[in-house]
């Protein structure tokens, strides 16, 4: 957290504590439902479980928190479930950047984060550009130059066209004028297998996954998508350091509550989650997975939603994808 955020946080805290004396303090009495949009084992589910286990190990919550899977539509099912739970203090949702980006192009997505009450932003996930260990490319510039020289020969494996890896590609392509193809695979395993088998040239991968494959001599990192160098990759330049003047595309995770959630309920969650974020258990998890601590309270999280949606609108329109809201 940078200094400005601390100041904003402190100001918000003092405001809230002032409000807290006026309103009654809220404490939940029933278990809290934590809605995630993936099935057991996938990213959001694993993240949610790690967060709950940090709460349990530190004994911070007065009630149990349980995972509720609302799978489907890249977050659309979970989002409409949360919007239906209007005013329910015992439901919160674990949002990812997909919750903000996907409704921009999905006509049938009826609920967006704008309909919900923001609670906190927790982390920003950095990522790295990686190639196979025996790849001829030694830097990001090498790849971009090769792509310029022979358009369409360089291939990148990735996920959905709305996912961060595709967005970063668009940003880089429009910045440099190079073009390379993007091949979608539904799971991370298939993306990595395509790279390790030499079927594609590069990919964007989470630092924790990349770390082990690099240590095992299977992969090399060329650049990192982060504002600052990660502690586990001290020698790998960030995209800016590698010579690309591009905006950082953050991938965020945090919590939202249903529409019209009372202020004192939001205050309760803000305080609880701030304690979790400061706990050693959570800090260790962040470090193990190379997540960047990016805690924001309710109001700032709402601003972040708007900024991120605007950034995405610009990028998607530039990439020729139709934006519907």
């Amino acid at each position: 957290m940078n200094r400005r955020n601390v100041l904003i946080g402190a100001a918000a805290l003092s405001l809230l504590s002032g409000a807290g004396t006026a309103d009654a303090q809220y404490t939940p009495t029933r278990p809290i439902d934590l809605v995630v949009h993936s099935g057991p084992g996938a990213g959001p589910d694993a993240f949610g479980r790690a967060f709950i286990s940090a709460i349990e190990q530190e004994k911070l919550s007065p009630v149990r928190i349980q995972i509720n899977h609302k799978i489907g539509g890249g977050g659309a099912t979970a989002a409409s479930y949360i919007v239906e739970k209007k005013g329910d203090p015992n439901t919160i949702g674990l949002f990812t950047s997909a919750w903000i980006a996907n409704p921009l192009v999905q006509e049938s997505a009826k609920a967006t984060v704008k309909d919900m009450t923001p609670v906190v932003r927790l982390v920003i996930e950095p990522a790295v550009f990686a190639v196979k260990a025996d790849s001829p490319y030694k830097s990001m510039m090498d790849i971009v130059d090769a792509a310029k020289k022979n358009p369409g020969t360089i291939k990148q494996s990735g996920g959905s066209p709305l996912a961060r890896d595709a967005i970063v590609r668009h940003v880089l392509m429009s910045n440099t004028g190079a073009r390379w193809s993007f091949i979608s695979f539904p799971t991370g395993s298939e993306r990595i297998a395509a790279l390790l088998g030499g079927h594609v040239d590069m990919m964007i991968i989470e630092p924790s996954e990349a770390g082990e494959l690099i240590r095992g001599g299977q992969m090399r990192a060329l650049a990192q998508i982060s504002d600052r160098r990660l502690s586990t990759f001290p020698d790998v330049p960030t995209l800016r350091e590698a010579g690309f003047n591009v905006p950082n595309v953050p991938q965020a995770r945090g919590f939202v509550a249903p529409p019209d959630t009372p202020r004192e309920v939001i205050a309760f969650y803000e305080q609880l989650f701030e304690k979790v974020v400061k706990s050693p258990t959570w800090q260790k998890y962040l470090n193990d997975n190379q997540f960047e601590d990016a805690f924001l309270k309710s109001e700032a999280t709402g601003k972040f939603f708007d900024e991120y949606a605007n950034l995405m609108r610009g990028i998607l329109t530039g990439a020729g994808i139709k934006v519907v809201r």
Partner: peptide
């Protein structure tokens, strides 16, 4: 799905699944 969750269990125990 099932092997993915076994893998995330390994991670939460502090092991590092991968080639090593």
């Amino acid at each position: 799905g099932t092997t993915a969750i076994l893998l995330s269990a390994l991670v939460l125990w502090g092991l590092k699944p991968g080639p090593m």
